[in-house]
Design a protein around this nucleic acid. Structure first.
Lengths: 128, 128
DNA sequence: CCGTATCCTAAAGGATACTG
DNA sequence: CAGTATCCTTTAGGATACGG
């Protein structure tokens, strides 16, 4: 028999993580909520480029995945507040590091475009 | 994805990061390469569910984004080796934490399905 | 061995208008 | 305020076949 060190069930859990966190906005939304509870309009303002429809959808998915809670206050005008669950908060460090890395990457490879990369010119910026 | 047209200044750099790292396979590939240089067929074997076409494409994008290098040895049969650049290696910690988180998430919310979540039932598992 | 070339489906994402 | 409802375009992702 073979040594079981190569048994696939031990899949790269990153795939799982990306299934939940993938998409353009999920982590950006979570990052906003790390600062505390926010209502829909506040999130919308914090992420100006997201459309209302996408914000709604991503919030619902995050809720379904157990990363955020949604609380509706039946007032006039209506108020809906979003907050992180424990699972959502557990992404704190990761979101922070991704943010840092993204900033570093953007500064280093300023042409985030898929066509302007002949020479690194200088990796002398130092990696995070 | 991959817009970068509207460079709003103090933006959530996570969006940038996700433009580069998003997609189902990018981080999984990077994680494999963290163990060292690998050739195409080795990567394919390490990620059985990826198709040849997708592997090729993702590798090319990672290369274009400056995260990996591609070295062709013109032999018979051909040999192509992939390795991380400094920028790619700088994702070490993040990839590791995402993997850990993904495993934890999968164990906790075993129904990774988007329909079996009424109540957290118990957040008593403890977060990473 | 390491890819391209086609062709295709499904999902992500978006613009705009309307509503309780 | 916080959404739905439509309709539409763009990517992601994949099956399969062929090529240097």
């Amino acid at each position: 028999m073979r040594d079981s060190s190569q048994e696939t069930p031990e899949y790269c859990a990153i795939e799982t993580a990306m299934e939940v966190l993938g998409g353009r906005w999920k982590l950006a939304i979570l990052k906003q909520l790390l600062t505390g509870t926010l209502r829909f309009s506040e999130l919308k303002r914090a992420l100006p480029r997201i459309t209302q429809r996408m914000l709604t959808r991503q919030l619902r998915e995050l809720e379904a995945d157990g990363l955020i809670t949604r609380t509706v206050y039946r007032e006039v005008p209506p108020r809906v507040e979003y907050a992180l669950t424990e699972a959502g908060r557990s992404l704190d460090a990761i979101a922070d590091q991704l943010d840092t890395w993204g900033r570093w990457y953007r500064d280093t490879y300023r042409a985030a475009d898929r066509s302007a990369q002949e020479q690194p010119t200088a990796t002398a910026v130092g990696t995070p």
